[in-house]
Design a protein around this nucleic acid. Structure first.
Lengths: 231, 231
DNA sequence: CGTGGTTTTGAAAGTTCTCAAGATTAGTGG
DNA sequence: CCACTAATCTTGAGAACTTTCAAAACCACG
């Protein structure tokens, strides 16, 4: 499979997706010098593990991942999902150890960007971009937090669907029709709800014709109406 | 009042608190050159406002702040509290605009660190420290998220009290007795609970002798027992 | 074409919220 | 320094929401 063959960033067809994630074109040649290797992961591959040494971040060229921790009772708790164009692993910068597990939800292609090599060259421009990226992530974190706190289960689910819609739109894909790569159980885990509650909400949204689902494809029929509900 | 008089970082008695927040001693002289001015804020002062231009971060030398947004219905939603030794405003780096309002909970002393001056000098070391700081904050964000999701109201409150306890301990203060600078209403807002629920939980924890409260002073009588409840 | 995992649906139990009112605390002016 | 007022905190009871448990329907995969 040709996708397994490492290619240079400058030749990478996904550049348009990866670059806007925070690395300006002028940095790309620098990245080529430090190692940055696209790699194909099968569904349910573990990209990195909690508490294990990690000095890289990963750009998602295709596919999706979930990040999660395992609590003291052995229960998985999903802390984030990441889709095409996202960068994963930024939390590890602080102490060189991964803060979570990271696992692919489907067959995915990720680029590993080795930060130690980048930092060794002390490139203020690249670091500035990383700072921008992390700052944006922090802002997003607050936003997600707002969706979780102080809202009904329905609002949580709608906010979740809309956040994916926004992400898709930002990456040039349809904001009204996309594939949900994660299971209902994963969504429930992530939102802190019971699976049954999530399922019931999907059903009621379908009954109101606000959304439709065919297999894992989600269609948003009335974006404005959904947005009004979480406002 | 002498505290109003700006002092240089190198003379600042709070250096031991501020410096571990992510700025190594060797950077302090650099910071003195770029502007960094301690300032006294009265209770309920607005330090910065959502969506307004912001190119500084603020180090909390004493006191505490809450960060919040105002939703479309005009309702305040608190996104974070910050105590002595914290740095506020990192979310603004991405686009030069504050992501939230920031308001003092009590009389507080803050240092404004003007980042544009720092960046103009392109100091990889300082930027590295900032990256570390933000990475740690991101990791914390996930952690806080875990406390919010998938736990009972009691666990949320306990996790909240413990997170402050940990913070105090990390800053050389007592982890078993500290002042809660925010109101029950603020805590409830932050945790996504009703005030009455928060109050009832404080009461029941007192009845179990796990904690005590005298005015705004909180005493933790059995740290281990509390930790066991959130595990 | 079965088999295991995922999703959906129903009914009862549990938790948290809302509304209402009383108790306590903090802030203000005399 | 005290009294007064406004704000905050606490407590109770019923309503609303979400979870749990149980079971059936659906789908993907080998």
């Amino acid at each position: 499979m040709t996708m397994r063959t490492p290619i240079q960033c400058s030749q990478c067809s996904m550049q348009s997706i990866c670059v806007p994630a925070g690395l300006v074109p002028s940095d790309v040649e620098i990245l080529d010098k430090s190692s940055r290797e696209p790699h194909l992961y099968n569904k349910r591959s573990v990209v990195f593990s909690e508490d294990r040494p990690l000095t890289s971040v990963f750009a998602i060229k295709s596919g999706s991942v979930k990040c999660y921790t395992i609590d003291s009772n052995g229960k998985q708790q999903i802390t984030s999902f990441h889709l095409v164009g996202d960068i994963v692993g930024l939390e590890a910068l602080a102490n060189g150890k991964a803060a979570t597990y990271c696992e692919t939800l489907e067959t995915s292609m990720l680029c590993e960007i080795k930060l130690n090599k980048l930092f060794a060259q002390e490139l203020p421009k690249v670091e500035n971009n990383l700072l921008q990226l992390m700052s944006r992530r922090l802002a997003n974190c607050s936003k997600h937090y707002l969706n979780i706190v102080n809202t009904s289960a329905e609002q949580k689910v709608i906010a979740f669907l809309l956040s994916i819609s926004t992400h898709m739109h930002q990456h040039g894909l349809s904001r009204n029709e996309y594939r949900l790569p994660m299971t209902r159980t994963d969504i429930a885990n992530y939102l802190g709800l019971a699976v049954e509650t999530v399922s019931r909400i999907f059903t009621s949204l379908k009954e109101e014709s606000l959304i439709d689902t065919k297999q894992s494809i989600l269609t948003i029929n009335n974006l404005n109406a959904l947005e009004r509900r979480v406002a």
